[in-house]
Design a protein around this nucleic acid. Structure first.
Length: 421
RNA sequence: GGAGAGGUGGCAGAGUGGUUGAAUGCGGCAGUCUCGAAAACUGUUUAGGAGGUAUCCCCUCCUACGAGGGUUCGAAUCCCUCCCUCUCCGCCA
């Protein structure tokens, strides 16, 4: 949610910012909804003030044991009027909020303008891809090694699921522990949270109301519960409706979780292998901090994600996403892309975003400055990393001519072997 | 699943229809005292919204005592529904 004051103080900047992401701001509707809302609020408040004043007089009369009947009769009418007005007020308020809630965040000034992923800018490259003769892909490698079984996964759950076996399963676990250990050691305090959340939690991070079709949905009695698409959802909501003391910031959490995505509308994309799954694992980094520290925190968070790739010796590059390719809630995003020999290109393995106060305003997460009023804090998060895709990258980059996989030193203590064969 | 208790300000905890946005205590902040600190004393201390003035100092009004409805001229206080927490019993990885 954008700051309502922005619309009053600098409407042009809002319009320009939204336009840069390809979003056309409907000014006419905005003005209509805003003025209607204000009109109704004012009307209702005048009436309520009147009611409160007369009620007090009634109280005085009653206490003095005098007759208050004429006043009471007069008040009845006011009550009826108010009932109608309050309904109108609620409706106007809801309409206004609904309108605001589908507006994406405004890009930071450092974000390049662009229409789609072609506008993204590479800002860093690390590592040198090994020269591999006729590289095989992870499906080929994994299946032959007997550690990946896509056919049997399809038998029980359909497309976009996988079964890992033997050292494949252990590699997944090893990576989870490796990542969580590293990030905890780097100061990201570990949390484990629910994998099902109420709608307001999803709304808080900006995935509702616009992206409902991407989520798996389930029921508990009358309640709707969503399966989380990322640990960002529960972890960000850890502090909803709270005011954190400034000296506590930044608050940094890492969280392992499975992630569930219906991948609606992505048919045909990344169909091969386990790049795009309905269910995958991720170690997520989430930070809460002040507006002043947020930009530096974004760099820090991204560096912590990169540290995992570097520890595993996986070549990658960092992309600064352009306005047209950023997520709905994001103000600025770096994607980390890992080298995949079989595709002869870099593929996304982490996305590190700075949300400004966009999520905090939706979820009502604030901090109290040392002296002053509470204000919305800034939230950030990034994958540190996506486990399944790291699994893929390790197989493909570590493949040997004989089809075995060389495991990076740092991971050996977790996996218990330096080679999968 | 059964029975009971309860949800009030940063915390503890009063308050059963009329200046209660909320007593009291603790904590926090400021001051007095002190070389300084502690203690003691004094004062102060919720948030959101609309408007005014103006820009962030202030003023007026509205809203909020788990959430949503209802009763009433008027609700933290009465009624209904839901949510959550705690205790006991049952069941259970």
């Amino acid at each position: 949610m954008l700051d309502p004051n922005l619309f009053r103080n600098d409407l042009d900047a809002v319009i320009r910012g939204l336009a840069s992401r390809g979003f056309e701001f409907d000014q006419e509707t905005y003005h209509k909804l805003d003025s209607e809302r204000r009109r109704v609020i004012q009307e209702a408040e005048v009436l309520k003030a009147e009611r409160n004043r007369v009620s007090e007089e009634v109280a005085k009369l009653k206490r003095a044991k005098e007759n208050a009947d004429p006043l009471i009769a007069q008040q009845r009418e006011v009550g009826d009027q108010l009932k109608a007005l309050e309904a109108a007020e609620k409706q106007a308020e809801t309409a206004f909020r609904d309108f605001l809630s589908i507006l994406p965040n405004l890009p930071h000034e450092s974000v390049p303008i662009g229409k789609d992923e072609h506008g993204n800018v590479e800002t860093k490259r690390w590592g040198t891809p090994a020269v591999i003769e006729k590289p095989r892909d992870h499906v080929d490698l994994g299946t032959k090694l007997g550690i990946l079984d896509l056919d049997r996964a399809a038998k029980m759950s359909g497309a976009r699921f996988s079964v890992l076996k033997g050292l494949g399963a252990k590699l997944e676990r090893a990576l989870i522990n490796f990542m969580a250990d590293r990030q905890s050691a780097a100061g990201w305090s570990e949390v484990m949270t629910p994998y099902m959340v109420l709608p307001h939690s999803v709304y808080g991070v900006g995935q509702l109301p616009k992206f409902e079709e991407d989520l798996f949905k389930t029921k508990r009695g009358e309640d709707t519960l969503y399966l989380i698409s990322t640990a960002e959802v529960p972890v960000t909501n850890l502090y909803r409706e709270e005011i954190l003391p400034e000296e506590q910031l930044p608050v940094r959490h890492c969280a392992f979780s499975p992630c569930f995505r219906s991948e609606a509308g992505s048919y045909g994309k990344d169909t091969k292998g386990i790049i795009r799954q309905h269910q995958f694992h991720k170690v997520e980094l989430v930070a809460f901090t002040t507006p002043q520290l947020a930009e530096a925190e974004h760099e820090h968070l991204t560096a912590c994600a990169e540290a995992i790739l570097e520890a595993l010796g996986l070549p990658y590059r960092r992309m600064l996403l352009c306005t047209g390719d950023m997520g709905f809630s994001s103000r600025k995003t770096y994607d980390l892309e890992v080298w995949l020999p079989s595709q002869n290109t870099y593929r996304e393995i982490s996305s590190c975003s700075w949300f400004g106060d966009f999520q905090a305003r939706r979820a009502n997460i604030r901090f109290r400055p040392k002296d002053g009023k509470p204000q919305f804090l800034h939230t950030l998060n990034g994958s540190g990393l996506a486990v399944g895709r790291t699994w893929v990258a390790l197989l493909e980059n570590g493949q040997q001519p004989d089809g075995s996989i060389k495991i990076p030193q740092a991971l050996v203590p977790y996996l218990g072997t330096d080679t999968i064969r």
